[in-house]
Nucleic acid binder design. Structure first.
Length: 111
DNA sequence: GCGGTGACTGACA
DNA sequence: CTGTCAGCCACCG
């Protein structure tokens, strides 16, 4: 099958992130089967327009907000995370310890 | 085909 | 802890 739609996979992974938890761009890309495409993930979220996507649950590898501190998007992401019970400290959040297998199963199925 | 760009990452000082 | 450097890959003119 020509899985050229990496976008669909990335969107699926982000949409599979449970509320109250956060993920890194690299982790999302890896879970989507596209290692090294962290930058692509960022572009997808930025260009994505359609169903509500929990893009605010995606942060940098350090658990820091990808936007510039004080920016409108930065404040919005922080507000959304806090609204879901995520503790945000100095624009930083605590990354959840979830293996790729767990994410993979959440997307493709329990098999 | 080429060079510049970016919601990135890891290593190093 | 912060800041800099090089590597990475997809997109655009």
């Amino acid at each position: 099958m020509s899985g050229s739609d990496g976008r669909a996979r990335i969107v699926a992974v982000v949409a599979a992130i449970p509320a109250g938890q956060v993920r890194g761009y690299g982790q999302v890309a890896l879970a989507a089967g596209l290692p090294g495409r962290a930058r692509w993930v960022a572009r997808i979220l930025a260009e994505h327009d359609g169903p509500a996507l929990p893009w605010h649950r995606v942060v940098r590898s350090d658990g820091r907000i990808a936007f510039a501190p004080g920016s409108a998007q930065w404040r919005e992401q922080v507000a959304r995370l806090q609204g879901e019970g995520v503790t945000v400290k100095s624009g930083r959040v605590k990354l959840a310890n979830a293996s790729v297998s767990d994410v993979d199963r959440a997307i493709w199925g329990p098999e």
